[in-house]
Computed example of a mutant assay.
Amino acid sequence: MQNRYASHPKEVKAFDTARLREEFLLETLFAEDELTLYYTHVDRFIIGGALPVKGNVKLAADAASIGAATFLERREIGIINVGGQGTVTVDGEAYPMDTKDCLYIGRGARDVLFSSSDSSEPAKFYFNSTPAHTSYPTVKAAISEAAPNHLGSPATSNERTIYKYIHTGGIQSCQLVMGMTLLKTGSIWNTMPCHTHNRRSEVYFYFDMTADSTVFHFMGEPQETRHLVVRNEQGVISPSWSIHSGAGTGSYTFIWGMAGENQTFEDMDPVAMSELK
């Protein structure tokens, strides 16, 4: 498990490209038959991926990092499959997962296994995990069951649909909020006009990109913006003081996860376009 520490915005102003990527970019999230984990001290998020090909991959605890006997002893997790068909087995109960299906598992589950239906087209399980103070039931939701929110327009190149999976009006959780944004063909911008939310941090995961496509992900304080070049199946940690927006050279989809003071999706601090620098 890799550690990522909280950074002060005044400090980040002096970061060069290499340091920005080291602190905020999640460059590799899938390795064959392995569990990939990043622990960020920003709201104690754990971000990770499981790519089962030849066999099962177990959601195992890193006791040195989380001080628990099992991964979900004091945590909850949201999982979205971005690959082929697979299964997540939770304490002996199997949950088949098609692409873009979401599974929430509450605090206290002990044994979680990831598997693929076809090794030639394996499942790719991306997940966000946050601390939890109580237990909620395990719930699966297909994208057709998620709450859609249509935003943007072709005129501003940001026509998109936000699908909410884990939120106050959907799958219940302690603090994790999670969903997915699909852009219409020809739209390249996400989350623009941008915002911050000083009471919550956020993590983005970009996927469904071609090998030669990139997303220029913008971060930083509104008056001191920076960017990261992000490629397929990479993620970005966004602290509460930072904007989080991006523009792609081709089509893409992204998963967002939030945690912090509240679960109110609309709790944002809008940034006027005229304020950006």
Rank of each mutant, 00 (worst) to 15 (best):
Q263D: 05
M258Q: 12
I237Q: 06
A141P: 01
P131S: 09
A68S: 08
D33W: 14
R200P: 00
N128H: 10
W189Q: 04
N3Y: 11
M219C: 06
A155Y: 12
S173V: 14
L151D: 01
K13F: 06
D91R: 06
F205I: 09
A123K: 13
G84Q: 14
L182E: 15
F218W: 11
N81V: 14
F45G: 01
E11Q: 15
G170T: 05
S242L: 07
S240M: 06
H227D: 01
A94C: 02
E145T: 08
R226L: 03
L26Y: 08
Y95W: 13
Y206V: 06
M268N: 10
G179Q: 07
F265P: 00
H41C: 10
F114P: 15
T70P: 00
F15N: 07
E32Y: 09
G106L: 11
A18Q: 10
S245Y: 04
K58H: 13
A142I: 01
T36L: 03
I162D: 00
S157C: 01
S153M: 04
P131A: 07
H133F: 08
T156W: 00
W241P: 15
E221A: 11
N149Y: 04
T225C: 03
N3V: 13
I166G: 02
R160K: 09
W241A: 12
M219V: 08
D16V: 03
A109C: 04
S120C: 02
F207E: 02
E145G: 12
F30G: 13
H8E: 14
A94I: 02
I47L: 09
F71G: 03
K164V: 00
V203S: 06
A61N: 03
I105K: 09
R74G: 12
P222V: 11
G235T: 09
S187I: 06
G67L: 03
P222W: 10
T161F: 08
D33E: 10
R21H: 11
K58Y: 12
K164P: 00
A142D: 12
A272Q: 13
M209W: 11
G55C: 06
E76W: 10
E233F: 05
I162R: 02
Y5N: 15
S65A: 14
N128S: 07
A64E: 11
A68N: 07
H150S: 09
Y252Q: 09
I77R: 08
H217K: 01
H41G: 15
T210G: 14
S274F: 01
M258R: 01
F114G: 14
Y104F: 15
N81I: 14
P52W: 03
P270Q: 13
P137K: 01
G78M: 05
I162E: 02
F207C: 13
H217E: 06
A61V: 05
K10T: 14
G152A: 01
G108V: 11
H195S: 07
D118S: 12
H195K: 11
R199I: 02
V177W: 00
L72I: 09
W256A: 07
V53C: 11
